[in-house]
């Protein structure tokens, strides 16, 4: 490796080191971008409908909830935690939005849907950070309980949404793109800024990398854990609002297995499940890749059951590439 102390600052080995560092840091993003590019070209060639404005605008809307939650999930996974409850929170938020909007104020419904997500996230975070429980177990319990709650308040029926205030959140258009797409763009930009350019983002990485070191540096690690899990709850609530508004209906079943899609997107983007390393842009591209796969396969008129199979296979290939190539390129010492 090229990191000897005696190397003068302008040495060739040093520049090679800097280049390796760039690849090291961005390997996940680079590899998932390559996968997306290949899929994009493949579907464009193989189908007439894929590379049309209409289709791409629709894909950009469909993937929005996954993109939005994947950004928040990147923070959680980078701290070395996980949030399995986002799909159930999405379902509860969507159902609550529709039910309250039907019988009362649309604004109250919107606020309530978001506060529900925030509240559940806060409970997840508090139990993990201050109750010293594993986030896997805490959010697994929430996955079950919150879905049950959603079924309870809806009796299993879906509720139509007719509010002129809420529907544009799913179907409004600005400059050719739907509102959910714009929300996703804003969330990605904000997430990228916070992750890479604020102390909070730095501490998220440090918690996953070496929490003890951060604690010794005088930072309250528990507050960071509480914050990231609260954030996924809130954002999952937002995803529920987007989904329900787009479908003009709130169903307690929406968001089933959504958590796995989000986690897949994050891992595809190069975020380490063990924590310490994450990429907001990678997660966004990962989510778009999953959306492009399901859209492309449908357009190819492949049996719809092939969609999850293909997504699973691509996940395995991406992780194998990450694990093998990554260790080879970075030369990381532990």
């Amino acid at each position: 490796m090229s990191t000897e102390t005696v190397t003068p600052p302008t040495g060739r080995a040093d520049r090679r080191g800097a280049r390796q560092d760039f690849v090291h840091r961005n390997f996940g993003v680079l590899s998932i971008s390559a996968v997306l590019a290949v899929l994009f070209v493949f579907f464009s060639v193989q189908t007439d409908a894929f590379l049309t404005t209409n289709n791409l605008v629709n894909v950009a809307r469909q993937v929005a909830p996954t993109v939005v939650v994947a950004v928040a999930m990147t923070f959680v996974i980078t701290t070395g935690n996980i949030d399995l409850s986002v799909g159930s929170i999405l379902g509860l938020s969507a159902a609550a939005l529709a039910i309250v909007a039907e019988s009362g104020s649309a604004v109250v419904a919107l606020v309530l849907a978001l506060v529900l997500g925030l509240g559940i996230g806060l409970v997840n975070g508090a139990l993990t950070a201050f109750g010293k429980l594993q986030s896997f177990i805490v959010t697994l319990a929430a996955l079950t309980a919150v879905r049950g709650l959603a079924l309870l308040i809806t009796d299993g029926y879906s509720t139509p949404i007719t509010s002129d205030f809420l529907l544009p959140i799913g179907n409004g258009r600005l400059a050719g793109l739907y509102t959910p797409t714009w929300i996703a763009v804003v969330v990605v930009a904000a997430g990228w800024y916070v992750f890479n350019h604020t102390r909070f983002g730095r501490y998220v990485v440090a918690v996953g990398s070496n929490a003890e070191s951060l604690r010794r540096a005088g930072v309250d690690v528990r507050r960071i854990q509480l914050a990231v899990l609260t954030l996924t709850g809130l954002v999952a609530g937002l995803a529920g609002v987007i989904t329900a508004a787009r479908l003009a209906s709130g169903s307690s079943n929406s968001g089933t297995l959504f958590e796995l899609e989000v986690i897949t997107a994050v891992v595809l983007g190069g975020t380490a499940l063990m924590g310490g390393k994450g990429s907001i842009i990678g997660s966004a591209i990962g989510a778009v890749t999953l959306g492009v796969i399901s859209n492309g396969l449908v357009l190819l008129r492949v049996d719809v059951y092939w969609v999850p199979i293909t997504q699973g296979l691509i996940l395995i290939v991406a992780i194998l590439l990450n694990a093998r190539l990554f260790s080879g390129i970075s030369g990381q010492r532990t």
């Binding site: 990485v205 440090a206 070191s213 005088g218």
Partner: peptide, 18 residues
């Protein structure tokens, strides 16, 4: 115990008082 592997040199030196 002192350092975060996934943070760069400057980040480690300034950890906790960025």
């Amino acid at each position: 115990l002192a350092l975060c592997n996934d943070v760069d040199v400057a980040g480690n030196l300034f950890l906790g008082r960025e």
